[in-house]
Nucleic acid binder design. Structure first.
Lengths: 158, 158
DNA sequence: CATTAATAGTTTACACGGCAATAGTTAATA
DNA sequence: TATTAACTATTGCCGTGTAAACTATTAATG
Protein backbone atom coordinates (compact mmCIF):
# COMPACT_ATOMS: atom_id res chain seq x y z
CA UNK A 1 0.00 0.00 0.00
CA UNK A 2 1.64 3.21 -1.16
CA UNK A 3 0.87 6.19 1.03
CA UNK A 4 1.84 9.72 0.20
CA UNK A 5 1.36 12.01 3.15
CA UNK A 6 -0.03 14.85 1.12
CA UNK A 7 -2.37 16.15 3.78
CA UNK A 8 -2.51 13.84 6.72
CA UNK A 9 -1.79 14.81 10.32
CA UNK A 10 1.59 14.12 12.03
CA UNK A 11 0.20 11.51 14.34
CA UNK A 12 2.13 9.02 16.45
CA UNK A 13 -0.83 6.70 16.30
CA UNK A 14 -0.71 6.84 12.52
CA UNK A 15 3.02 6.17 12.49
CA UNK A 16 2.57 3.23 14.84
CA UNK A 17 -0.18 1.78 12.68
CA UNK A 18 1.96 2.17 9.57
CA UNK A 19 4.96 0.53 11.22
CA UNK A 20 2.88 -2.33 12.58
CA UNK A 21 1.27 -2.87 9.19
CA UNK A 22 4.70 -2.97 7.57
CA UNK A 23 5.87 -5.57 10.07
CA UNK A 24 2.74 -7.64 9.42
CA UNK A 25 3.31 -7.41 5.68
CA UNK A 26 6.85 -8.73 6.06
CA UNK A 27 5.73 -11.64 8.23
CA UNK A 28 2.92 -12.46 5.82
CA UNK A 29 5.33 -12.41 2.90
CA UNK A 30 7.69 -14.79 4.69
CA UNK A 31 4.83 -17.13 5.60
CA UNK A 32 3.23 -17.14 2.18
CA UNK A 33 5.35 -20.01 0.78
CA UNK A 34 4.27 -22.15 3.73
CA UNK A 35 0.58 -21.47 3.27
CA UNK A 36 0.29 -19.91 6.72
CA UNK A 37 -1.39 -16.69 7.74
CA UNK A 38 0.12 -14.56 10.48
CA UNK A 39 -2.83 -15.34 12.75
CA UNK A 40 -2.25 -19.05 12.24
CA UNK A 41 1.47 -18.68 12.88
CA UNK A 42 0.69 -16.95 16.17
CA UNK A 43 -1.42 -19.92 17.27
CA UNK A 44 1.27 -22.39 16.23
CA UNK A 45 3.87 -20.31 18.05
CA UNK A 46 1.85 -20.48 21.25
CA UNK A 47 1.60 -24.25 20.94
CA UNK A 48 5.27 -24.72 20.06
CA UNK A 49 6.30 -22.80 23.15
CA UNK A 50 3.70 -24.03 25.63
CA UNK A 51 2.36 -27.38 24.51
CA UNK A 52 -1.39 -28.12 24.26
CA UNK A 53 -3.57 -25.17 25.25
CA UNK A 54 -7.17 -24.18 25.83
CA UNK A 55 -8.89 -21.67 23.57
CA UNK A 56 -8.77 -19.16 26.39
CA UNK A 57 -5.01 -19.56 26.70
CA UNK A 58 -4.51 -19.28 22.96
CA UNK A 59 -6.63 -16.15 22.91
CA UNK A 60 -4.57 -14.61 25.70
CA UNK A 61 -1.23 -15.51 24.16
CA UNK A 62 -2.13 -14.29 20.69
CA UNK A 63 -3.86 -11.15 21.90
CA UNK A 64 -7.24 -12.04 20.45
CA UNK A 65 -10.69 -12.43 21.95
CA UNK A 66 -11.86 -16.04 22.31
CA UNK A 67 -14.28 -15.95 19.35
CA UNK A 68 -11.49 -14.99 16.96
CA UNK A 69 -9.19 -17.63 18.38
CA UNK A 70 -11.93 -20.22 18.10
CA UNK A 71 -12.48 -19.56 14.41
CA UNK A 72 -8.79 -19.41 13.55
CA UNK A 73 -8.41 -22.79 15.22
CA UNK A 74 -11.38 -24.03 13.16
CA UNK A 75 -9.53 -23.26 9.94
CA UNK A 76 -6.33 -24.76 11.26
CA UNK A 77 -8.18 -28.01 12.05
CA UNK A 78 -9.54 -28.02 8.50
CA UNK A 79 -6.00 -27.42 7.31
CA UNK A 80 -4.71 -30.32 9.40
CA UNK A 81 -2.41 -28.21 11.59
CA UNK A 82 -4.02 -28.81 15.00
CA UNK A 83 -6.50 -31.05 16.82
CA UNK A 84 -9.38 -30.16 19.11
CA UNK A 85 -10.03 -32.60 21.97
CA UNK A 86 -12.20 -32.55 25.08
CA UNK A 87 -10.59 -31.57 28.34
CA UNK A 88 -11.25 -34.58 30.57
CA UNK A 89 -10.84 -32.57 33.77
CA UNK A 90 -13.17 -29.72 32.71
CA UNK A 91 -15.86 -30.64 30.23
CA UNK A 92 -16.46 -27.00 29.32
CA UNK A 93 -12.94 -26.64 27.99
CA UNK A 94 -11.13 -28.04 24.97
CA UNK A 95 -7.48 -28.89 24.43
CA UNK A 96 -5.84 -27.76 21.21
CA UNK A 97 -2.72 -29.67 20.23
CA UNK A 98 -0.39 -29.90 17.26
CA UNK A 99 -0.69 -32.50 14.53
CA UNK A 100 2.46 -33.89 12.97
CA UNK A 101 2.01 -31.35 10.21
CA UNK A 102 1.86 -28.50 12.71
CA UNK A 103 4.79 -29.87 14.66
CA UNK A 104 6.83 -30.17 11.46
CA UNK A 105 6.62 -26.42 11.01
CA UNK A 106 8.43 -25.71 14.25
CA UNK A 107 11.47 -24.31 12.40
CA UNK A 108 9.24 -21.30 11.68
CA UNK A 109 9.25 -20.54 15.41
CA UNK A 110 12.14 -18.13 14.89
CA UNK A 111 10.35 -16.21 12.15
CA UNK A 112 10.21 -13.12 14.32
CA UNK A 113 13.99 -12.96 14.36
CA UNK A 114 14.05 -12.57 10.60
CA UNK A 115 11.39 -9.88 10.82
CA UNK A 116 13.37 -8.11 13.55
CA UNK A 117 16.51 -8.15 11.44
CA UNK A 118 14.73 -6.65 8.45
CA UNK A 119 13.02 -3.95 10.49
CA UNK A 120 16.11 -3.02 12.50
CA UNK A 121 18.53 -2.93 9.59
CA UNK A 122 21.00 -0.07 9.98
CA UNK A 123 20.03 0.76 13.57
CA UNK A 124 22.71 0.58 16.26
CA UNK A 125 22.21 -1.33 19.48
CA UNK A 126 21.41 1.78 21.48
CA UNK A 127 18.70 2.88 19.06
CA UNK A 128 17.21 -0.61 19.22
CA UNK A 129 17.18 -0.58 22.99
CA UNK A 130 15.64 2.88 23.06
CA UNK A 131 12.97 1.84 20.56
CA UNK A 132 11.87 -1.15 22.61
CA UNK A 133 11.91 0.83 25.84
CA UNK A 134 9.95 3.72 24.39
CA UNK A 135 7.39 1.44 22.78
CA UNK A 136 6.87 -0.31 26.09
CA UNK A 137 6.41 3.04 27.78
CA UNK A 138 3.91 4.12 25.13
CA UNK A 139 1.94 0.90 25.47
CA UNK A 140 1.98 1.26 29.23
CA UNK A 141 0.73 4.84 28.98
CA UNK A 142 -2.09 3.64 26.77
CA UNK A 143 -3.11 0.86 29.11
CA UNK A 144 -3.05 3.17 32.10
CA UNK A 145 -5.25 5.69 30.36
CA UNK A 146 -7.65 3.06 29.05
CA UNK A 147 -8.04 1.62 32.53
CA UNK A 148 -8.73 5.07 33.96
CA UNK A 149 -11.25 5.97 31.23
CA UNK A 150 -13.68 3.09 31.06
CA UNK A 151 -15.94 2.77 28.02
CA UNK A 152 -19.17 4.73 28.03
CA UNK A 153 -21.70 2.19 29.21
CA UNK A 154 -24.52 4.72 28.94
CA UNK A 155 -25.17 4.68 32.67
CA UNK A 156 -23.21 7.55 34.14
CA UNK A 157 -25.60 7.74 37.03
CA UNK A 158 -28.01 5.20 38.35
CA UNK B 1 -7.52 -6.65 25.27
CA UNK B 2 -5.35 -7.78 28.15
CA UNK B 3 -2.21 -9.59 27.10
CA UNK B 4 0.17 -11.28 29.47
CA UNK B 5 3.46 -12.14 27.86
CA UNK B 6 3.84 -15.44 29.62
CA UNK B 7 5.51 -17.29 26.79
CA UNK B 8 5.67 -15.17 23.71
CA UNK B 9 8.79 -14.24 21.77
CA UNK B 10 10.54 -10.84 22.17
CA UNK B 11 9.47 -9.58 18.79
CA UNK B 12 9.61 -6.02 17.54
CA UNK B 13 6.76 -6.79 15.20
CA UNK B 14 4.70 -7.95 18.15
CA UNK B 15 5.58 -4.84 20.16
CA UNK B 16 4.65 -2.62 17.21
CA UNK B 17 1.34 -4.40 16.78
CA UNK B 18 0.60 -4.04 20.50
CA UNK B 19 1.47 -0.35 20.49
CA UNK B 20 -0.55 0.34 17.38
CA UNK B 21 -3.51 -1.54 18.83
CA UNK B 22 -3.25 0.50 22.01
CA UNK B 23 -3.26 3.74 20.02
CA UNK B 24 -6.27 2.55 18.04
CA UNK B 25 -8.07 1.64 21.26
CA UNK B 26 -7.52 5.14 22.65
CA UNK B 27 -8.78 6.79 19.47
CA UNK B 28 -11.79 4.48 19.39
CA UNK B 29 -12.57 5.28 23.03
CA UNK B 30 -12.42 9.02 22.33
CA UNK B 31 -14.63 8.65 19.25
CA UNK B 32 -17.19 6.41 20.89
CA UNK B 33 -19.35 9.22 22.30
CA UNK B 34 -19.59 10.69 18.80
CA UNK B 35 -20.66 7.45 17.17
CA UNK B 36 -17.63 7.40 14.89
CA UNK B 37 -15.26 4.56 14.10
CA UNK B 38 -11.58 5.26 13.58
CA UNK B 39 -11.88 4.34 9.90
CA UNK B 40 -14.71 6.83 9.51
CA UNK B 41 -12.73 9.51 11.34
CA UNK B 42 -9.85 9.00 8.92
CA UNK B 43 -12.17 9.63 5.97
CA UNK B 44 -13.61 12.73 7.62
CA UNK B 45 -10.10 13.94 8.42
CA UNK B 46 -9.11 13.64 4.77
CA UNK B 47 -12.16 15.64 3.75
CA UNK B 48 -11.70 18.29 6.45
CA UNK B 49 -8.12 18.88 5.33
CA UNK B 50 -8.56 18.59 1.56
CA UNK B 51 -12.17 19.30 0.60
CA UNK B 52 -14.19 16.96 -1.64
CA UNK B 53 -12.23 13.91 -2.80
CA UNK B 54 -12.46 10.90 -5.08
CA UNK B 55 -12.51 7.38 -3.68
CA UNK B 56 -9.00 6.88 -4.99
CA UNK B 57 -7.76 9.95 -3.11
CA UNK B 58 -9.53 8.90 0.09
CA UNK B 59 -8.00 5.45 -0.23
CA UNK B 60 -4.52 6.93 -0.63
CA UNK B 61 -4.88 9.36 2.27
CA UNK B 62 -6.32 6.81 4.68
CA UNK B 63 -3.91 4.05 3.67
CA UNK B 64 -6.61 1.70 2.45
CA UNK B 65 -7.24 -0.04 -0.85
CA UNK B 66 -10.09 1.49 -2.89
CA UNK B 67 -12.59 -1.30 -2.17
CA UNK B 68 -12.27 -0.74 1.56
CA UNK B 69 -12.59 3.02 1.17
CA UNK B 70 -15.65 2.56 -1.02
CA UNK B 71 -17.42 0.49 1.60
CA UNK B 72 -16.51 2.73 4.50
CA UNK B 73 -17.94 5.63 2.52
CA UNK B 74 -21.08 3.56 1.94
CA UNK B 75 -21.65 3.32 5.67
CA UNK B 76 -20.91 6.99 6.15
CA UNK B 77 -23.51 7.88 3.52
CA UNK B 78 -26.02 5.72 5.36
CA UNK B 79 -25.02 7.55 8.52
CA UNK B 80 -25.52 10.92 6.86
CA UNK B 81 -21.89 12.03 7.20
CA UNK B 82 -20.94 12.39 3.53
CA UNK B 83 -22.43 12.58 0.04
CA UNK B 84 -21.49 10.72 -3.14
CA UNK B 85 -21.87 12.68 -6.39
CA UNK B 86 -20.80 12.12 -9.99
CA UNK B 87 -17.62 13.78 -11.15
CA UNK B 88 -18.75 15.89 -14.11
CA UNK B 89 -15.27 16.06 -15.63
CA UNK B 90 -14.62 12.30 -15.42
CA UNK B 91 -17.66 10.12 -15.43
CA UNK B 92 -15.73 7.16 -14.06
CA UNK B 93 -15.03 8.99 -10.83
CA UNK B 94 -17.17 10.13 -7.93
CA UNK B 95 -16.84 13.08 -5.61
CA UNK B 96 -17.27 12.51 -1.89
CA UNK B 97 -18.11 15.59 0.12
CA UNK B 98 -19.16 16.45 3.66
CA UNK B 99 -22.74 16.88 4.75
CA UNK B 100 -23.54 19.50 7.38
CA UNK B 101 -23.39 16.71 9.94
CA UNK B 102 -19.93 15.71 8.79
CA UNK B 103 -18.76 19.30 8.67
CA UNK B 104 -20.08 19.90 12.20
CA UNK B 105 -17.65 17.30 13.52
CA UNK B 106 -14.62 19.26 12.35
CA UNK B 107 -13.57 19.99 15.97
CA UNK B 108 -12.56 16.32 16.07
CA UNK B 109 -9.85 17.08 13.51
CA UNK B 110 -7.32 17.52 16.30
CA UNK B 111 -8.15 14.18 17.87
CA UNK B 112 -4.69 12.84 17.08
CA UNK B 113 -3.15 15.51 19.32
CA UNK B 114 -5.03 14.12 22.31
CA UNK B 115 -3.92 10.62 21.40
CA UNK B 116 -0.32 11.81 21.02
CA UNK B 117 -0.42 13.47 24.44
CA UNK B 118 -1.71 10.30 26.11
CA UNK B 119 0.81 8.03 24.40
CA UNK B 120 3.79 10.32 24.96
CA UNK B 121 3.07 11.11 28.61
CA UNK B 122 6.28 11.24 30.61
CA UNK B 123 8.61 11.12 27.60
CA UNK B 124 11.05 13.97 27.09
CA UNK B 125 11.37 15.80 23.80
CA UNK B 126 14.47 13.90 22.78
CA UNK B 127 12.84 10.52 23.35
CA UNK B 128 9.86 11.67 21.29
CA UNK B 129 12.05 12.80 18.45
CA UNK B 130 14.03 9.56 18.54
CA UNK B 131 10.83 7.50 18.53
CA UNK B 132 9.44 9.19 15.44
CA UNK B 133 12.78 9.00 13.64
CA UNK B 134 13.30 5.34 14.47
CA UNK B 135 9.76 4.40 13.49
CA UNK B 136 10.24 6.11 10.15
CA UNK B 137 13.47 4.23 9.65
CA UNK B 138 11.77 0.95 10.53
CA UNK B 139 8.92 1.62 8.12
CA UNK B 140 11.39 2.57 5.41
CA UNK B 141 13.36 -0.62 5.99
CA UNK B 142 10.16 -2.61 5.64
CA UNK B 143 9.13 -0.91 2.42
CA UNK B 144 12.59 -1.38 0.93
CA UNK B 145 12.58 -5.06 1.75
CA UNK B 146 9.02 -5.58 0.51
CA UNK B 147 9.87 -3.92 -2.78
CA UNK B 148 12.96 -6.10 -3.17
CA UNK B 149 11.10 -9.33 -2.32
CA UNK B 150 8.02 -9.36 -4.53
CA UNK B 151 5.18 -11.71 -3.63
CA UNK B 152 5.31 -15.27 -4.90
CA UNK B 153 3.10 -15.15 -7.95
CA UNK B 154 3.50 -18.90 -8.54
CA UNK B 155 5.11 -18.36 -11.93
CA UNK B 156 8.85 -18.39 -11.34
CA UNK B 157 9.32 -19.79 -14.82
CA UNK B 158 7.00 -19.63 -17.74
C1' DC C 1 -28.41 -29.54 48.67
C1' DA C 2 -30.64 -26.12 45.69
C1' DT C 3 -29.98 -22.03 43.69
C1' DT C 4 -27.09 -18.64 41.84
C1' DA C 5 -22.99 -16.98 39.85
C1' DA C 6 -18.97 -17.55 37.17
C1' DT C 7 -16.50 -19.74 33.44
C1' DA C 8 -15.31 -21.94 28.56
C1' DG C 9 -16.49 -22.13 24.23
C1' DT C 10 -19.28 -21.20 20.27
C1' DT C 11 -22.50 -18.71 17.27
C1' DT C 12 -24.33 -14.60 15.35
C1' DA C 13 -24.12 -10.00 13.66
C1' DC C 14 -21.35 -6.55 12.22
C1' DA C 15 -17.02 -3.61 10.86
C1' DC C 16 -13.07 -3.70 8.29
C1' DG C 17 -9.01 -5.39 5.70
C1' DG C 18 -7.18 -7.93 1.41
C1' DC C 19 -7.39 -9.67 -3.63
C1' DA C 20 -9.77 -10.80 -7.99
C1' DA C 21 -13.11 -9.87 -11.25
C1' DT C 22 -16.25 -6.65 -13.42
C1' DA C 23 -18.59 -2.52 -15.81
C1' DG C 24 -18.07 1.79 -17.48
C1' DT C 25 -15.18 5.52 -19.04
C1' DT C 26 -11.11 7.67 -20.74
C1' DA C 27 -6.50 7.60 -22.84
C1' DA C 28 -3.18 5.72 -25.96
C1' DT C 29 -1.97 3.80 -30.15
C1' DA C 30 -1.95 1.32 -34.57
C1' DT D 1 -10.59 6.54 -36.39
C1' DA D 2 -10.86 1.84 -34.50
C1' DT D 3 -8.90 -0.85 -31.37
C1' DT D 4 -6.45 -1.60 -27.32
C1' DA D 5 -4.89 -0.32 -22.96
C1' DA D 6 -5.36 2.01 -18.63
C1' DC D 7 -8.05 3.80 -15.05
C1' DT D 8 -12.21 4.46 -11.40
C1' DA D 9 -15.24 2.49 -8.73
C1' DT D 10 -17.84 -1.30 -7.25
C1' DT D 11 -19.01 -6.09 -6.03
C1' DG D 12 -17.92 -10.86 -4.45
C1' DC D 13 -15.42 -13.91 -1.59
C1' DC D 14 -12.77 -14.60 2.28
C1' DG D 15 -9.95 -13.86 6.70
C1' DT D 16 -9.87 -11.52 10.88
C1' DG D 17 -11.40 -8.49 14.69
C1' DT D 18 -15.13 -7.00 18.11
C1' DA D 19 -19.34 -7.35 21.17
C1' DA D 20 -23.45 -9.69 22.58
C1' DA D 21 -26.22 -13.66 23.17
C1' DC D 22 -26.35 -18.45 24.05
C1' DT D 23 -25.19 -23.45 25.79
C1' DA D 24 -22.97 -26.32 28.75
C1' DT D 25 -20.46 -26.97 32.74
C1' DT D 26 -18.36 -25.89 37.13
C1' DA D 27 -17.95 -23.17 41.39
C1' DA D 28 -19.92 -20.49 45.06
C1' DT D 29 -23.48 -19.39 48.18
C1' DG D 30 -27.88 -19.51 50.80
Amino acid sequence: MEIEDVSAPPSLGRQLVLSAAAAKDIAARLLEPHGLSLAQWAVLSSLWMNGPLSIKAIARLTGNAPPAASRIVDRMITGGLVLRQEDTSDRRAVVISLTDTGEAMRPLATLYEEVNAILLDGLDTEAERALFATLERVTGNARTWLAASPPDRRQTSR
